[in-house]
Design a protein around this nucleic acid. Structure first.
Length: 235
DNA sequence: CCAGACGTTGTT
DNA sequence: GTCTGG
DNA sequence: CCAGACGTTGTT
DNA sequence: GTCTGG
């Protein structure tokens, strides 16, 4: 679950989201060109927000979705894209990242496939109300193969509004929680509470045409974002 | 104590 | 490094 | 997550 | 069926 998401984000929406208060303070211009992806799949670069130790303000940077980890010396590296909220703090592999390398993945929505119509997998975009940005809880992990930055999305039990599509969902944070998640002052206890709390900001599933995601890569220019924003405006 | 693992999802 | 299993 | 491949040798 | 690549 949460193996694919969209980052089709306007700068002003990013300001509205509360992730950045002052455009000039971030490397946002450099990052902006990444914020027009309809589909971000594992291994592809995406935009994340983190708070560097030297700074109080969160800033944008690029990380690849997922990180390859070496499990057991012999086996081949495995790509991980999610970490379970219920157990992440207990996992040696994730613990340090949860303590010091938390990040936010701002998304227009994420995709989920649900089995319908005689075994066919039907895609949904699961997104906040209106054109708001969803702030997904993530952790950064060093990729054991490339050495680059990878981001894993924290997953939790699906809340009622999307549980009919799928039984898991990304940990979706409110504005207040986002601040805590990104702060380097937040205690382990508070992190733990955020990971296991039951309520989440509501998300809405919108069924989308299979052709929208397509079996072949379609360039943004060809696809035109209007089709996409049309989908979103329905809600 | 040491040795060995260290991960998620969905599906069966 | 740190947890689990024996 | 889904889509797509799933193979080897020698020669160019 | 299962693995790899994006």
């Amino acid at each position: 679950m949460c193996g694919r998401f969209a980052q089709l984000i306007e700068l002003e929406e990013l300001v509205d989201s509360g992730l950045i208060s002052d455009l000039s303070l971030t490397n946002i211009n450099e990052v902006n060109k990444y914020l027009s992806e309809k589909q971000i799949r594992p291994t592809q670069p995406c935009v994340v927000f983190t708070t560097e130790s030297s700074s109080k303000e969160a800033s944008a940077s690029i990380a690849r979705f997922g990180a390859k980890v070496k499990l057991g010396g012999n086996s081949s590296p495995k790509l991980l894209i999610n970490a379970r909220a219920e157990t992440a703090l207990d996992k040696p592999l994730f613990h340090k990242s949860l303590m010091t390398r938390r990040c936010i993945v701002p998304v227009s929505g994420y995709y989920e496939w649900s089995e319908l119509h005689g075994g066919k997998r039907v895609p949904y975009l699961i997104h906040p109300q209106g054109n708001q940005i969803a702030k997904l809880a993530g952790i950064l992990l060093r990729d054991a193969v490339s050495g680059g930055e990878g981001v894993l999305v924290i997953t939790t039990d699906a809340s009622q509004s999307v549980s009919h599509i799928h039984h898991r969902q990304p940990l979706h944070l409110s504005q207040q929680e986002t601040r805590m998640w990104l702060s380097r002052e937040t205690s382990t206890k508070d992190i733990s509470n955020m990971l296991i709390r039951s309520d989440q900001v509501k998300l809405h599933p919108t069924q989308i045409a299979s052709s929208y995601l397509g079996d072949r890569e379609v360039s943004l220019a060809e696809a035109s974002t209007s089709e996409y924003t049309e989908q979103l405006r329905l809600f």
